[in-house]
Amino acid sequence: MNIFRLTGDLSHLAAIIILLLKIWKTRSCAGISGKSQILFAIVFTTRYLDLLSSFISLYNTSMKVIYIGCAYATVYLIYMKFRATYDGNHDSFRVEFLVVPVGGLAVLINHDFSFLEILWTFSIYLESVAILPQLFMISKTGEAETITTHYLFCLGLYRALYIVNWIWRYYFEAFFDLIAIVAGVVQTILYCDFFYLYVTKVLKGKKLSLPA
């Protein structure tokens, strides 16, 4: 464990909690892509099946349980409790165009052709693109609530910190997981455009709105 990984995990946790609180406090999931949240629930479920087979640390186990629990709670709030506020018309990204190729890729390119390992690989690839329905929704409506941009910023920061973590682990632990690194870099690149808007608009007190 190094400081970049720890702060990355905490940033990830902050993102998840910001989103839950936003929905809970405003009693609304307007502007939130339910599809992205379902993808994240699938990501955590398929990646953390090793909860049942291997124990790494108390920290590792508790974070996994919290991530999974929060992911399902978010999906529940969007599709059940605050369903009336869900903006389904604007959440029109075709997720099958992500899930099917990602599934195929996980079967073709993995560390080991075993059930758990393929599911882990699938979750890594899927996570790298799971935010696309949310970004698509923002580009479609042309705007995002400020709290939603804080959520996205924390999520992107988590990915950026993980890259620094991998550089650290490469030099100091000779640790190197090509699948995680490539997918992680792809995922971080997806946030670059958003980071630019966040710094130039949101941090200067303006609402994030895109030119028509």
Binding site: R5, D9, H12, R47, D50, S54, I56, N60, M63, K64, Y67, H111, D112, F113, S114, E117, W120, Y162, N165, D177, A180
Partner: peptide, 10 residues
């Protein structure tokens, strides 16, 4: 074993 990677990251 080669394939039995222990994924210790979240």
């Amino acid at each position: 074993a080669d394939g039995e990677a222990l994924h210790d990251e979240l």
